[in-house]
Structure formats: C-alpha cells, structure tokens
C-alpha cells in the first residue's frame, strides 16, 4: 500500500488485505469444520458403507454452509469486542466500512465459493471411500448439477449469514447464541403476524391450528390460509413475507451491523 492509497476514503486494496487476514485467521476453524464433516462421513461409511451427507444432492453443501459458515459469521467481530484485541482492531489503519465490507464479502460471498470447491473435493473423496467400502460411490457433488437449488441455498445462507454478522457486531458476549435467539424472536413475531391475520379473518380454530389435537401448524399455515382468504390475499401475504425476509431483513442487517462497527468504542477501563 502506498500513500496515495492511504488517502482514499475507500480502498479495495485495504479490503483485500483485510480479507486475506480474515481468511488466514479463519483457516484453522475451517479445517476443523472440514475435518469434522469428513470424520462423521467416514464413520458412516465404515458403519454402513454410505456417507451420511454425500447422497449426490445439495445436502453436503448445506451442512457445510450452515455448520461452519454461520458459526464463522457469528464470531466475525469477536476481536473487535475483545478487551485487549479490540483496541488493535479499531486502530488498524482501515476504515470501519472497509472492515465491515471485508467481513461481509468473506462470509457471504467468498466462503460459499471456496466452500463449494472444498465440498466438491470432499464429496469426491467420500465417493471413492464409499466404493472402497463396497458402497455405491460415484455420487460426487457439483454445484452445476442443480444450480438453481444451489443458488437458492446460497441466498438463504446469505440472509442467515448477514443476520449473524449483525449479531456478531452487536453482541459482545455469546454472539452466536444471542444472534440465534434474536432470529427465533423474529420467526415468532412473523409467525404471530401470520396467525393474527388468519385470526382476523375468523378462520375456524380447527383449521388455523390444525385439525388434530389443536396442535400448532407453523409450517402449514400457508396451506390453510386458502380458506376463507382469497388466493390473491395469500399471494399478497407471501409477497409481504418474502419482501421482509429477502429485502428488508438483509438491508437492515447490513446497515445495523455496519453502524455497530462504525460506532464501536474501546471503553473498557478508566485509568
């Protein structure tokens, strides 16, 4: 980096350096994650001849993203909150925006891309081991095989990742747990919103809450909304929920997370 770059308000060169540092910091955790995934599948192959998460579909990819990507996102700003490391983190010569963008690109974009390559390799290895163990083998996962689903999984992962990144920027202690808790609250609020609409339309209790034992039908609510709501109303409700989940929530998470990073102060002691 030179003095010209230093004067820039936003520098891709600095973001690149931050990305590199993050990747190197996360490498041990990533290797542990891959090791666990491999270990679980290896045990499954030894026991049954089949890899548990290598059935030729996107399952292995999903497990990898959710298993490690969310954890890494949830702890993305742990150094910033650390009593000692926080000062170094805040005073590292890069702007708050660059530091936040680096985290966002790392976990939302780069991690899934690099992860796809890792998972392909892992899937190939597991397939070979299946063959050796007398299993079916030949079920190597590739993102191109069902690209639409892969993109859909990535999109959903991105929302979760952004949520956990914002949580990591916000919560100083137990960010993963608190982010998960806040996500649960969001889901419950949205569920309450849907049910309040159903109740407002006087849907019979047996339909709204399921026909068997009055159990709650969180996932099935949409199906029962067909009556007495019109098809148009259901579609509108779906649009609202989708706009919230895929539009408002990510924008809110990005903005909120960035503000938490930009406003961070190292106020731990008085001397």
């Amino acid at each position: 980096m030179n003095t010209t770059t230093l004067k820039k308000k936003f520098s891709f060169e600095r973001v690149e350096l931050l990305l590199k540092n993050r990747a190197l910091d996360d490498l041990p955790s990533l290797l542990i994650g891959v090791g666990i995934l491999f270990g679980v599948n290896l045990l499954s192959i030894i026991g049954t001849g089949y890899a548990l998460f290598n059935r030729g579909n996107n399952q292995i990819w999903t497990v990898f993203l959710l298993g490690a990507g969310i954890v890494l996102s949830g702890y993305a700003f742990r150094e910033m909150h650390d009593e000692k490391a926080g000062l170094d983190w805040v005073l590292l010569p890069a702007t708050s925006l660059e530091k936040y963008v680096a985290a966002l690109v790392e976990y939302v974009v780069l991690y899934p891309l690099v992860g796809a390559l890792v998972v392909m390799g892992l899937s190939g290895l597991l397939s070979a081991l299946e063959l050796v163990a007398g299993g079916p083998g030949g079920r190597i996962w590739t993102p191109g095989a069902d690209f639409g689903s892969v993109m859909s999984i990535w999109g959903n992962y991105a929302i979760f990742s952004l949520w956990f990144l914002a949580g990591s920027a916000t919560f100083r202690r137990k960010p993963l747990l608190k982010s998960a808790g806040s996500l649960l609250v969001y889901v419950l609020v949205m569920t309450g919103f849907v049910f309040s609409i159903l109740l407002a339309h006087r849907i019979p209790r047996s339909v709204a809450f399921g026909s068997s034992g009055y159990s709650f039908m969180w996932n099935g609510a949409g199906r029962y909304m067909a009556w007495p709501l019109s098809g148009g109303a259901v579609a509108a409700l779906n649009i609202i929920l989708n706009v919230l989940l895929y539009g408002i929530v990510p924008i809110f998470c990005i903005g909120f997370g960035y503000l938490r990073v930009a406003e961070k102060e190292v106020r731990d002691e008085v001397q």
Partner: peptide
Amino acid sequence: REAAFLADIAFVPEDPWLP
C-alpha cells in the same frame, strides 16, 4: 477513523495484545 489518520498514530497500550 480515516485510514490515513489511523496510519498516522501509533498506540501502545499498557498491556498490548498480539496475535
């Protein structure tokens, strides 16, 4: 906290953290 400003200061805390 502009990058140019941060590069122009060096802070040694009482108990430094190192990676």
